[in-house]
Design a protein around this nucleic acid. Sequence first.
DNA 1: TAAAAAATTTAGACACATCTAAAAAAATAT
DNA 2: ATATTTTTTTAGATGTGTCTAAATTTTTTA
Lengths: 216, 216
Amino acid sequence: MNTLAEENYLKSIYHLGLNNESVSTNQLAALLNTKASSVTDMLKKLAEKELINYTPYQGVTLTSSGEKIAINIIRKHRLWEFFLVEKLNFKWDEVHEMAEEMEHISSNELIDRLDKFMGFPKYDPHGDPIPDCNGKFKAHDLKPVSSAGIDINGVISGVRDHSAAFLQYLDKQGLTIGKKIRITEIIEFDHSMVLQLDDKTIQISREVANNLLIIL
Amino acid sequence: MNTLAEENYLKSIYHLGLNNESVSTNQLAALLNTKASSVTDMLKKLAEKELINYTPYQGVTLTSSGEKIAINIIRKHRLWEFFLVEKLNFKWDEVHEMAEEMEHISSNELIDRLDKFMGFPKYDPHGDPIPDCNGKFKAHDLKPVSSAGIDINGVISGVRDHSAAFLQYLDKQGLTIGKKIRITEIIEFDHSMVLQLDDKTIQISREVANNLLIIL
DNA sequence: TAAAAAATTTAGACACATCTAAAAAAATAT
DNA sequence: ATATTTTTTTAGATGTGTCTAAATTTTTTA
Ligand SMILES: [Mn+2]
Ligand SMILES: [Mn+2]
Ligand SMILES: [Mn+2]
Ligand SMILES: [Mn+2]
């Protein structure tokens, strides 16, 4: 139906356009690791198919049919990630690249059965919400640890940075999804934070605190 | 590493070259639903990569590295088919097209873990052998029902035709993998055969008998 | 608000995988 | 053995997705 490249563009436009409004050519070029001129070419094609709203020089937004396709790809990505972690015992830092390929397997019947097989999970291994077969999903109300103050309690429920390096670091520190934390100290000098876990105390940099998301 | 088209050519060369020797351009064109001239182009590319032995006008054979790749794709295809049937409850006539896509997911670590997850199955839903992670496999010693005579007993263990139409017909008749049959009559006029199953008697055409494989 | 900088689009090219039509080689028939 | 048919390859073209370099538009700065 749509090519692999088209699907990847739609997914990227969706991710970049989440909060803000229209997505720029350069933003897409950066995320997709390609050149602005290539992006322009593809935007024309997607506009022709009425999957995006495109006005030259003004960036793009998804049409509702474009958004539907994007959400479906994200659904597949996250369900496959869940499968890889829960059924095949991969670690959360190992699954993203595989899911990038698997999200393009076309059958919806397959993905709906996979969903059922796994008990209709609501969140993927990184805490991101999994759209249901109608594209509906609800994100947690997440805040970066860095935005919380002294003596605040929270539950680790997501990450902003999905890089393997960051996820491996969190693993090593025991900062995994579901863990309860309490902020016991904030170092004024560099804004690093001291966290109390169930079993130990650890210190994290501002950088880490910015990318670690909790539910209060 | 190799493109999707290259993988499909290698797989096709493998399947066509099983018993006989070299595979012709036209055979490949027919199986891959493409034109002979396109095949020639691709054969040059695969020869350049030393995945096939190609002499113009003489057909091709796989090199050992080409064969290794082909067998790995077949391993993936059959393991995904097994997964779809055993874990997601698809029927044996529904899985081939999905597996055609899934066989190109690149990670070998993934497929090895999938293999383990399913308990290292030896045969796919159609009775075809699944190569292990070293590419080793052993096919059953299969014979078409049509080659057996009166009063012979056998166990249905494979099919020659993999079309959905044929598989659905077999399902409806209760002629599924593992079923024990006994040939009770052969009609001289059209070579159709009467089979005794555990619970019933059915008659099949010569065409069906040719495509249904048993272990004696 | 005019000049400079940045972002975006256009123009022209290329690799890949495919096609049709024509040429060449191999196999078959007379 | 020659002619005919079949098979295969070559030549030239197309669509997709990408690229670099140049032109254009928008934004920022002075
Ligand atoms: Mn991911
Ligand atoms: Mn994820
Ligand atoms: Mn199959
Ligand atoms: Mn099969």
